[in-house]
Amino acid sequence: MSRAHAAIDALRAWTPEVDGWIIAIGALAAVACAVPGTLLVARRQSMAADGIAHAVLPGIAGAFLLSGTRDLAWMAGGAAVAAVAMSAGSAFLERRLRVERDAALGIAYTALFALGLALVVRAADGVDIDPSCVLFGAIEFAPLDRVTAGGRAVPRAALVIAATAGANVAVAALAWRPILASSFDRGFARAAGARPAACDAIVGAMATATCVACFESLGSVIVVAMLVVPACAARLACARLVPMAALAAAFGCGATVLGHVAACVAAPVAGLDASGVRELSTAGCVAAALGACFAGAAGARAVMSRNRPVDGAHAASLPCAP
């Protein structure tokens, strides 16, 4: 019982000013990620999320080295350049080397990520950028960095991520019909006058902006989980894009709460507080919670619907209706 009490005490120690904001930032990130995540999954470009999340790093680090500030305009500009370089580079490699899209993407983004890590090491003598923070995220410190908005001191990350979420929803709503058509039937979209390549660029731009906004809090690898896992979980339950995005946002919010609770109670429950462990990394726990919730959903779906494909080779042909 004492472990349960310790866990409850850990949750009682929550304060709205710290833990409240951590959960709010995570939930906002879930909403911001839901829109590009759903679109990427529907367009069968899930690994592009991985690519973009890794490739923005040299842009951000390069902008930091050039400008010496963490000014958002510089970072977003650098990230945009890097994301364009990644997609242009992987398209070029795919054509020139005649390799599959995945391999071309893997080359382009690992090379850019390596460049980013090398730049971060150069910049590490300065302040604010640190390799482990880039990889693992530091949402715990996000509530400390405040700016004044509307007479209140609000964490900078919350403002930035909320603005990104709003922009994502607005852009998706404005370009909805071409995006919808090109997500499912590029030939039809082209015939109907939409431009699938332009839609790819719009979705890529949304994903890039989201990665820039979220990477400080979540870390570059865990942004991938937030983009892809909720959208895939939602895909298991519905086929229409709007409910899928809404469900993905809800799934991400739920995993954020679960992840932060787990980060706070895991040490007392496992009896690790005796060896000096206090809180686990919230970003890591959120990603693990996303994976656990997805595994639960996928397992439940597999049990409920017995119509498994006979041959693994055909499993990729999941029909995805608008």
Binding site: S46, M47, A49, D50, L135, F136, G137, G219, V221, I222, V224, A225, M226, L227, V228, V229, C232, A262, A263, A266, E279, L280, S281, A283, G284, C285, V286, A287, A288, L290, G291, A292, F294
Partner: peptide, 16 residues
């Protein structure tokens, strides 16, 4: 992408 993100996240939490 699901396996990569979730398992790396789990590793991050355990490492912390």
């Amino acid at each position: 992408a699901i396996a990569l993100g979730s398992l790396f996240g789990l590793g991050t939490a355990m490492l912390s």
